[in-house]
Simulated assay, not measured.
Amino acid sequence: MNGQYPIYSRIILLVIFLIVALASVAALSGFWSEQSSTQPEEIRQAILDACVQCYALEGSYPPSLEYLEEHYGLILDRERYFFYYEVFASNVLPTVEVYKKE
């Protein structure tokens, strides 16, 4: 045999490798699709965090979402979500609501 594996052993190893590779691809695909489906509450919290950061640095809450996008790098997916942002006063945390478009 010259120290080599018989052909059926190679085939079995190849089948096992293919099964592991396919399972890995399926698991990663599920992971990435789950990561891309951000929930509205998580987006809302990110907006509020940016508002608090703005308040800490500037002494007032941002006047609009556009201000956060321009000055704080906030990126909003307006194609997938509706955003409601209401400012009562510059020293009161704004009301923020996020709704997924159907």
Score class of each variant (00 low, 15 high):
Gly3Ala: 09
Asp77Lys: 12
Glu79Asp: 12
Glu69Arg: 13
Val98Phe: 02
Ser60Pro: 06
Glu34Ser: 13
Thr38Arg: 09
Asn91Tyr: 11
Ser36Gly: 01
Pro63Phe: 05
Arg10Val: 08
Pro40Asn: 02
Ser64Cys: 07
Thr38Asp: 03
Val25Ile: 13
Leu22Cys: 13
Tyr72Pro: 01
Leu93Ile: 09
Ile12Pro: 02
Pro63Leu: 06
Ile16His: 07
Glu34Ile: 09
Gly3Pro: 00
Gly3Cys: 10
Lys101Asn: 03
Arg44Lys: 14
Tyr8Ala: 10
Ala21Thr: 08
Arg78His: 02
Thr95Gln: 11
Gln4Ser: 10
Leu22Thr: 11
Gln39Gly: 06
Val52Leu: 15
Ile11Glu: 05
Gln53Ile: 04
Gly3Val: 03
Leu68Ser: 04
Trp32Ala: 01
Ser24Thr: 01
Glu86Ser: 14
Gly3Asn: 11
Pro63His: 06
Cys54Phe: 14
Leu48Val: 02
Tyr72Phe: 05
Gln39Val: 12
Gly73Ile: 02
Ile11Pro: 10
Glu97Ser: 07
Arg10Ile: 15
Phe88Arg: 09
Ser60Cys: 04
Gln35Ala: 10
Lys101Gln: 08
Ile43Gln: 00
Tyr99Thr: 11
Pro40Ile: 06
Glu69Pro: 05
Tyr84Asp: 08
Leu93Gly: 01
Val92Asp: 01
Ile11Ala: 10
Ser24Arg: 07
Tyr99Arg: 15
Glu97Ala: 12
Ala23Trp: 08
Gly30Phe: 06
Ala21Asp: 05
Tyr99Gln: 10
Ile11Asn: 09
Phe82Val: 07
Tyr72His: 03
Ile7Asn: 04
Glu70Ala: 14
Ile19Arg: 09
Pro6Val: 12
Gln53Gly: 13
Glu41Tyr: 14
Ile19His: 04
Val15Tyr: 10
Arg44Asp: 02
Glu69Lys: 10
Gly59Met: 11
Tyr99Lys: 14
Tyr72Asn: 01
Asp49Val: 13
Ser9His: 13
Thr38Cys: 02
Leu57Asp: 14
Arg44Leu: 02
Val52Ala: 15
Thr95Glu: 13
Ile16Asn: 06
Glu102Ala: 14
Val25Phe: 12
Arg10Thr: 05
Tyr61Val: 07
Tyr72Gln: 03
Leu14Met: 13
Glu58Met: 14
Arg78Pro: 03
Gln45Thr: 10
Val52Cys: 08
Ser24Lys: 05
Gly30Asp: 02
Tyr99Pro: 03
Leu48Asn: 01
Tyr84Lys: 15
Cys54Leu: 11
Trp32Thr: 03
Gln53Ala: 08
Pro62Tyr: 00
Leu13Ile: 07
Leu28Thr: 00
Leu48Pro: 00
Glu42His: 14
Ser29Asn: 06
Ala26Val: 01
